[in-house]
Every structure is written in C-alpha cells, then in structure tokens.
Amino acid sequence: MIPTWPTELPRPERNTWQKSPQESRLKRRTDAGPNGYRGRFSSVAELVNLSILVDRNGKAIFDNFHRYSVKRGSKPFMMPDPTTDGWALLTSAGEPLLTSGGVPILLAARWLCLFGDQQPSEAIVGVEFRISFSVAVMP
C-alpha cells in the first residue's frame, strides 16, 4: 500500500513554492552556433520545492511520516495537490459553483510523489518549525 500524506499537516506555504519540470533534453554539441537538443524521454516528473510551518506536534507528525511511512524518503507516497485539492470550482465569472444545497463544489487532485534529492531541512521560526523539502511529482 502506498503511504498517504498526513491530513493533520497544513497546506504548503505559498511564498516558498517553486515548480519546474525535470530536465528531459539531451544536449547535442554542434561545430558552430548554439548547442542543439533532442528529447531524452517523453514523460517527465515535476520537481516541486515546498515548505510547511508547523508547531511541535506537526513536526512530530512530519518526522514520523518521513522516517517510518516513507522510509526516510525512499518510498513513494500520495499527496494532495496543493494548487488544486480543496479549492472551489469556479464559474466563468469567478464565482464558486454550488450544489443544490448551497455548498461549494471542491476540486480534488492527488500527486504520486517521491521526496527529492535533498533530505528535508528545518528552521525554527518563533515557536514553530519551518520544514523545507522537495518532491518529484510522478507523471
């Protein structure tokens, strides 16, 4: 069974969010002019840098998940896509789309991830902990 990101942890911070595609090109040297490129493979992971701000309990939840559930980052896991999951579905006018009961319809999206090359790092911010990490989102 694939471990799932703990629901008790907060959404990643917006100000540290960075995403880029994995390099999928192979450089070709040329005799003159700029280098050329060709595709190395057709399917690439998205590399995402994230951080979360947690209290002492949240740090323990993250540490337990990283250490035991994903074996210090060696196993894949499912994580809600923080740019989509839980956000309201909007009309073309930007208004939330509602059910017949007046409740907003929420989007759902999940990622299959692996922790990135660097192990998570943490910094103390007042009485909280900022845990920074990267994930590779599988295609």
Rank of each mutant, 00 (worst) to 15 (best):
G36S: 14
A93L: 06
K71C: 02
P104V: 06
P10K: 02
G86Y: 11
L26H: 10
T84K: 14
I2P: 01
R40H: 08
T4R: 06
D81K: 01
T99E: 13
A108Q: 11
L9N: 05
V48N: 03
K27C: 06
N49P: 00
K27V: 15
M79K: 02
G86D: 10
W5H: 05
T7Q: 13
G101H: 01
Q22Y: 08
L90K: 03
F77S: 03
P120T: 04
N49I: 00
T30K: 07
N15S: 13
A123H: 02
D31R: 07
V127A: 13
P80V: 00
G58E: 11
P80K: 04
T91I: 03
I124T: 12
K19Y: 04
D117Q: 08
P104S: 03
E46I: 04
R130H: 07
L53Q: 10
K59I: 00
D63P: 00
R38C: 11
Y37E: 04
W17M: 13
L97E: 08
A32T: 12
A108E: 11
G39A: 14
M78S: 09
F129R: 07
T16V: 02
Q119W: 03
K71G: 00
P80L: 04
Q18E: 11
R25H: 13
K27Q: 15
S121I: 08
W17V: 02
A109Y: 03
A60V: 10
